[in-house]
Every structure is written in structure tokens, then in C-alpha cells.
């Protein structure tokens, strides 16, 4: 029996070791190397890259990225909760609404982000309409700023919030909501005292599923933020491409990973259950 179980486990273990842990180990080695004059890297061994990660300039980018991810995640929660609640009580229409939530996944994320650029830019749909309606004279600065990045992140990751919330809310027995009302609770009190506590595992899963990819997001900040709003994903990408500083890029990557892991462990310890 145990032999059979090991056999089932073997493919995924092999893949994880080969394609995840090994590159991670290589990345860790890189962080202690020195960048070469024309790209590449080599001796001498150094701690310089890790010291640079702690530089206020880069710490500032990290803080800004955490804030952008946190704001986006909270907005996803605020928008996603009512939506998930609505879908979970929609009876036979549930599947239709769920289908609509995941419908954006049918096209590539890149194309959808470009679509936002067409909407938001100075000569885009929104500004054209506003100007032709005489509401504004000059186009509004909708693109290439912090707000556009948050908008793009919320748009992109909202389904990852809605789905776990839906799963948790759908499991709440509707008798419990009736019981709460029966005992005298106004719908808002039912929401606060019954629905929210019982959906907490879904909220936690949604927060994690949205926050982590938002923190490491590269595409959205790069396309919608322009050059101005540099976030940590863009920083890492720059190190590996234009700056050709692989050792430092590796150090920032691992620092980001460590930060996320610490966060998850704190969350897991507080709730005494698994990470999700």
C-alpha cells in the first residue's frame, strides 16, 4: 500500500524538485555572486546584494507594493463580498452568474489589460466621451498612475476573491439566516452575527489568493502604471532585463517570497489551520 502511495506521489515530487526547488536553489546561490561588467555574474562571493535589498530606496518600493496589493485586495473584498452573497442566494441562476465571473479568463490577461489602456488613455473611450459631452475640456489623467494600477489589479483578481467567498457563503444553511431573522435580528445584524463569522474561512482564502499575486504583479503595474509607479514586480523584471543585475534581482525575489511566507505563517498560526 505505502509503495503504491509513493508511486502516486513520485511524479509531482519529481516535478516540484526539478522545476521549483532546484531553480530556487540556483536563485539563492546567485544572490551571493557579483554582477559581471557585461551581464553575467561570477566571483567574488558577497553579501552586497542582500545589503542593497535593505536600502531605503528599495524598501520604499516594497512598502509601496505591499500598500498597492493591500488596497487592491481590500477593494476586491468590498466588491466581491456582496457579489458572492448575491450569487450564493441566486437559486437556479447561480451557475449562470458564476460563469459570468470566470468569463474574463477566456481571453488572455494581456489583451484585457490592453483593453483597459484603450479605455483609460487620453484619446481613449472614456475621455473621448467626456470631452464630446462637454463635461471636461482637457482629458482626465486616467492612465499611468497609481489609481490605474489598483484598478487593473482589482479587475484582474476579483474572480479569485469571489470564488472562495461564494464557496463559503453557499455552504451556509439558509435555515440559519431564517433562524436569525426569526429570533429578531434585522438583516444587517444577521449579516454581522451569522453570515460574516461563518464565511470567515472563505474571506481568509480570498485575501490570500488575491494579495499574493497582487504583490508580485508585473504586467499590470508595467502597462497601466507606466514608468512612474514602480512596484516590486517591475523592479525584479528590470534587474533581470535592462539592468542585467541577476544577483540583485534574485535577492529581491527571495526577499519578496520570504515576506509572503512570514505573512502566511502568522495568519496560519492565528487561526490554527492550514494556509488556505
Amino acid at each position: 500500500m505505502t509503495r503504491l502511495r509513493r508511486l502516486f506521489l513520485a511524479p509531482s515530487v519529481t516535478l516540484t524538485v526539478l522545476l521549483f526547488l532546484t531553480p530556487l536553489g540556483i536563485l539563492l546561490v546567485y544572490t551571493f555572486l557579483t554582477r559581471g561588467a557585461y551581464g553575467g555574474m561570477g566571483a567574488p562571493w558577497t553579501l552586497e546584494n542582500w545589503v542593497r535589498v535593505a536600502d531605503p530606496l528599495y524598501l520604499g518600493i516594497l512598502v509601496r507594493s505591499v500598500l498597492a496589493a493591500a488596497v487592491s485586495t481590500l477593494l476586491c473584498l468590498v466588491l466581491g463580498f456582496p457579489l458572492a452573497l448575491f450569487i450564493s442566494r441566486a437559486g437556479r441562476r447561480k451557475n449562470l452568474y458564476l460563469f459570468l465571473v470566470v468569463l474574463p479568463f477566456w481571453t488572455s490577461f494581456l489583451i484585457r489589460t490592453y483593453a483597459w489602456m484603450f479605455l483609460l488613455r487620453d484619446t481613449g473611450l472614456i475621455n473621448t466621451l467626456l470631452i464630446s459631452a462637454g463635461i471636461v475640456r482637457e482629458p482626465l489623467p486616467l492612465l499611468y498612475n497609481y489609481g490605474a494600477v489598483v484598478l487593473g489589479l482589482v479587475y484582474g483578481y476579483l474572480p479569485f476573491m469571489v470564488l472562495p467567498l461564494y464557496a463559503a457563503l453557499e455552504r451556509i444553511d439558509s435555515n440559519l439566516l431564517e433562524a436569525s431573522s426569526d429570533l429578531g435580528a434585522h438583516p444587517w445584524q444577521t449579516l454581522k452575527r451569522v453570515v460574516l463569522p461563518l464565511s470567515a474561512p472563505g474571506v481568509r482564502a480570498g485575501l490570500i489568493l488575491v494579495f499574493i499575486p497582487c504583490l508580485g504583479a508585473y504586467l499590470t503595474p508595467d502597462l497601466l502604471g507606466g514608468g512612474k509607479t514602480i512596484l516590486i514586480g517591475t523592479l525584479i523584471q528590470n534587474q533581470f532585463s535592462t539592468a542585467r543585475d541577476w544577483p540583485f534581482g534574485s535577492a529581491v525575489s527571495l526577499a519578496l517570497m520570504a515576506a509572503v511566507m512570514v505573512l502566511l505563517m502568522v495568519l496560519a498560526r492565528r487561526h490554527g489551520d492550514s494556509l488556505l
Partner: peptide
């Protein structure tokens, strides 16, 4: 309620 509907 038939299922009692206690708040778990």
C-alpha cells in the same frame, strides 16, 4: 426548525 438551525 426541523434541523434545529443552531448557529454552529
Amino acid at each position: 426548525f426541523q434541523s434545529y438551525a443552531l448557529f454552529p
